[in-house]
Every structure is written in structure tokens, then in C-alpha cells.
């Protein structure tokens, strides 16, 4: 097959295996990676939120500022945000066909993900470093 006139892909492109979008299986890989990470992380998040139900501001701050809780909460946010950004990107690519709207929404998706992610991480770090 290689070297045949019907084969326009170069050997290098085949070896790299990145396809025409130059991303290969990157989106799929990150989606599954964060999906697996999210299972224990979201369970931790649920447990944290439920145990803090009805707690005073002082108790919530004390709980969230414990290093272990803060570190795992940062992981929850980072993994969740990456997973969420990839998912919304897929939804946009599936349903929005006009280039202008699609690109605008893809940009908004990235802005939203970074704003929520940074906002939540900043809050966790502020609490962790003593409010």
C-alpha cells in the first residue's frame, strides 16, 4: 500500500496518527481520563457538600481550608471543568452548523470554562491560605 499512487498520506503522517485536525484522539482521551477521575472526585465533592449542609460560615471555612480538602477540591474543579468544556464543545459541534455561530460559541465555551475554573480555584486557594 505504501508508495502506491492511491495513497496520499505520507509515512510520517501515518506514524504520527494525528489525522487532519492534527489532534488525533486527544479529545477522546482527555474526555475519558477526566471521566474516570470524576467518579471518585465527584463522590468526594458530594460527601463534602452534604456534610456541610446547614453548617455555619465558620465551620464551612474551617472545613474547606484543611489542606487535604482544599487539594482534592482543586482536583474536583480542574477535572470537572476540563470534562465539562470538552462535553459542551461536542454539543456545539454536533448541533451548530453555521461557522460564525459555531466559532462564537466555541470561544464562549472556553471563556466560560476558564472563568468558572479560575473563580472556583481562586476561592478554594483563598480559603486554604487563611481567607
Amino acid at each position: 500500500m505504501s508508495g502506491s499512487i492511491n495513497e496520499l498520506r505520507t509515512p510520517l503522517s501515518k506514524v504520527r496518527g494525528l489525522g487532519s485536525a492534527k489532534e488525533g484522539t486527544d479529545h477522546f482521551w482527555r474526555q475519558r481520563l477526566t471521566a474516570i477521575a470524576n467518579v471518585p472526585l465527584i463522590l468526594f465533592f458530594l460527601w463534602t457538600v452534604i456534610s456541610l449542609n446547614g453548617a455555619s460560615h465558620k465551620d464551612v471555612v474551617a472545613h474547606l481550608s484543611s489542606p487535604i480538602v482544599a487539594i482534592v477540591m482543586l482536583l474536583v474543579i480542574i477535572s470537572g471543568i476540563v470534562h465539562m468544556k470538552l462535553g459542551m464543545q461536542t454539543i456545539i459541534e454536533d448541533y451548530v452548523h453555521s461557522d460564525r455561530t459555531k466559532i462564537a460559541l466555541l470561544i464562549l465555551n472556553i471563556f466560560f470554562a476558564f472563568t468558572m475554573g479560575l473563580g472556583a480555584c481562586f476561592a478554594i486557594l483563598k480559603l486554604a491560605f487563611g481567607g
Binding site: 460560615h57 464551612v60 471555612v61 474547606l64 477540591m73 474543579i77 468558572m116 473563580g119 472556583a120 481562586f122 476561592a123 478554594i124 483563598k126 480559603l127 481567607g131
Partner: peptide, 11 residues
């Protein structure tokens, strides 16, 4: 948004 809002409010 709810998660970020809750965390930011606590901070």
C-alpha cells in the same frame, strides 16, 4: 455556576 458561586461566597 452554583459551585463557583458557593465557593466564592464562602471566600
Amino acid at each position: 455556576i452554583l459551585v463557583a458561586w458557593w465557593l466564592i461566597s464562602a471566600a
